[in-house]
Design a protein around this nucleic acid. Structure first.
Lengths: 204, 204
DNA sequence: CCAGATATCTTTCCATTGTCAACATTGAAA
DNA sequence: TTTCAATGTTGACAATGGAAAGATATCTGG
């Protein structure tokens, strides 16, 4: 057994990553509206001014967290898509379900990613992560229609319709706007979500 | 006594209504994240503590503003619907376009209404105003299908799909996630929105 | 018509927050 | 070893939401 209790080191080690994790915990617990940088510092066990050495300001920390969120959204879509068996339509539907399920599992993070101006959405890290997630959906839609995104205006409409459907569904579910039966089993919910997303599939 | 309906203040004229208007101006200028109660008071020309006599706290003021927003959303949908000529499908599409256009014209307010937990969404004033707007969409969808909302599960799916589509479209447009051509004329945008909403119409 | 009573507004005060500046500690390069 | 940049800490500041208490205008009962 360690005889000497380790005196808290002056330097944390990897405060940057710890702060991002702390920020997510803070976000989940307090919501974006109650989010506090000092709260994150406290969770990480450092003084209130320590984060400044890793993030320019509170919004920069939220930017990093949002970017991680987009990575995980992307992962959720790809995993669901790969697990789906069936034709391209089913892969498309599955990726959409992955999108919605990510939102439902991470409402506060989703809100940060899509409903807040605090993260710097122009930053390369963030816009590229968002672009990758967007590309999954776009790829699936275009694979179904065989259209040319760059030249065929209808292709853009296909993509927008599909994205709007999964995104709107996510927002309404998160915001608890749909008054679904309380006793609805998760499997039934997922089936319903899939059915609705299937409606937005381009009719080739 | 000229009027008698609500309490008529005297000092300021009607600080309650003035504050709601000030809150909207503050919201539009600073966004929800930069919204400040003291800023509202300054706009209204009163001391920073005056609002407390009309609203329990800042969130209560935002609740009142959100409720007004739902009234105006409702109005936007009904007006667009009434102006549309054509069958029920066109009325449905028009009301959806009214929804999206309201969102585009009032992004900050829309964000307050749907993307914030600060307003008390359980309050009767707010939930009833939201219910009225929801009912317009529901009514149109059911009128198209002739389904029974209470008993036919597919009816609920029709409604959710339609709402998710218009709502998702609104969020994506507001959030500037769709990289639409800069030079796109508003009329073309509206046409595209209508075309996308039409996809979500139940196929009876 | 007058004297509380009441509603409205102001001033003052406090805790919390984000950010800045100044200082302390550490590990690593020179 | 010495220096120094990176990384922490403490202390200060202004802005904010909210509470408390005083000031003032309007209403209401006599």
């Amino acid at each position: 057994m360690p005889t000497a209790l380790p005196h808290k080191p002056y330097h944390h080690g990897d405060l940057r990553l710890t702060l991002i994790a702390a920020a997510e915990a803070e976000l989940v617990e307090k919501g974006l509206e109650g989010f506090s940088l000092r709260g994150c510092a406290k969770r990480a066990g450092v003084s209130h001014a320590a984060p400044a050495h890793h993030f320019k300001d509170a919004d920069a920390l939220l930017s990093a967290l949002a970017a991680e969120g987009f990575d995980r959204l992307n992962e959720s879509m790809v995993k669901a898509m790969d697990a789906a068996d069936g034709g391209m339509i089913e892969k498309f539907v599955a990726s959409g379900v992955g999108y919605v399920m990510f939102a439902c599992a991470n409402p506060a993070l989703f809100h940060l990613m899509f409903g807040s101006k605090r993260p710097d959405h122009e930053s390369p890290r963030l816009s590229e992560a968002g672009g990758r997630a967007f590309a999954v959906l776009t790829g699936n839609v275009l694979a179904m229609t065989g259209r040319d995104y760059a030249n065929d205006p209808a292709a853009g409409e296909d993509v927008i319709a599909a994205w709007a459907m999964v995104h709107g569904l996510s927002e309404l579910l998160i915001g608890d706007k749909l008054h679904l039966p309380e006793d609805m089993p998760p499997a039934a919910l997922e089936t319903m979500i899939a059915a609705i997303i299937r409606r937005s599939a381009p009719k080739s």
